[in-house]
Amino acid sequence: MTGYDGYDDRHDGAPAGESGRPDEPAAEHGMTRRQLMRHAGWFGGAVVLTVASGEVISHVAGARDATAEAATAGAAAGSGELRFVQVSDSHIGFQGPANMDVAGSFKEAIHQVNSLGFRPDFVMHSGDLTHLSTAGQFDQVKQMMTGMKTDRVFTVPGEHDSIGDAGRAYRRAFGAGTLGDGWYSFDTHGVHFIALVNTLSLEKLGHLGNDQIDFVRKDVAGLSSDTPVVVFSHIPLFAMYPKWGWSTDDALKVIALLRRFSSVTCLNGHVHQLFTKTDGNITFHSATTTAYPLPKPGRAPAPTPQVVPARQLKDALGIRSVGYRRGDRELAVTDERLA
């Protein structure tokens, strides 16, 4: 993949799920109520995941929580260790009462990335960079992201980045060096990364398609089963809430290809809220947004932008930092409020 800064670190092979339906209140959104409380509130609570004696442990933390900062630093301290940041759903071009200044919010998110206390190895924007996929909006978000203090910026498209043209404007702006409709993979710090596109064939759910699934199959074929794998997509690769399209209809075919790996982390956007689900060796993390909140699944007729009191908006927005140390079984994930 060639980021817009010209970086090329693609793995030469050429890959990257679905489970649990969140319908029952007692096991709402794929988790028990106790697990849901452990993994944080829907709107902006920072979630820190660490590994102790092989067990993934989480706690809820504020943006400046000392334990959260220690977890991030501990996961990434020392030479040869990986630190990267995920931002998502900036929706540049959106106009509405849910956020009257999405560009200003994204600027604050960029400032937060630059104030983490370390220089990320890369930043991944996991889709819906723009709201209406116009050339001007793509140019604006591209220019804004040049202000991030990182060597590399990667992206995957959201459905808002493909309005009316099947993603052609997105690929002109961000697709250099990608394959097919914009998918790619790369390796760094002993971790294999796969960036998928599941927003182009939307009838109801996300969709990958046979060409992309074949790409995943070939891409992971030569990897050792102890290679950590991280998968980026916009729409979740699990059945978070299919009624709203928060799922990918053929993701199980890709998940099956990843079952042999000891550690797989799938990071997505789209849903504008934090959520964590573990299925065997695979952990799914949905990210929050830098633009506006969406309702909790089933708590509104449709996933439309939610208006919250101005003082609460930043609590619903945020960024995610991720650390990995060679030899660890899992990645350390910290979600931080924009406030």
Rank of each mutant, 00 (worst) to 15 (best):
R325N: 04
V254H: 05
A166D: 15
D249S: 15
V220A: 11
S262H: 12
A302P: 03
G41Q: 11
H131Y: 13
H29K: 02
L116C: 04
Q95L: 07
F284M: 11
V113A: 07
F138R: 08
F193C: 09
D121M: 05
T32K: 06
A169H: 08
Q137S: 12
F275R: 14
T32Q: 07
Q143V: 01
T188D: 15
L223K: 14
T283Y: 02
Q212K: 06
S262A: 12
A173V: 00
V48A: 13
L237M: 14
R171I: 02
P305Y: 06
F232D: 02
D151T: 04
K243N: 04
H189W: 06
R171L: 14
E18D: 10
F84C: 03
F43H: 13
S247E: 15
L196E: 09
T304K: 13
T289H: 12
G62I: 01
I213T: 13
A75N: 02
D23M: 13
S233C: 13
L196R: 14
V231Q: 03
P120K: 09
V113S: 05
S201C: 00
F186N: 11
G177E: 04
L208A: 11
S105V: 02
D128M: 10
F106Q: 12
D8R: 07
G127M: 09
L257N: 08
Y184H: 08
K253Y: 07
A221Q: 13
I92C: 00
G17S: 11
T289W: 13
D121W: 00
F122I: 00
S201D: 14
K314M: 09
V229H: 13
K218T: 15
T178P: 04
G269I: 02
F261R: 03
S58W: 00
T2I: 12
G80S: 09
H125A: 15
A46H: 09
F215N: 03
D315N: 15
R38T: 15
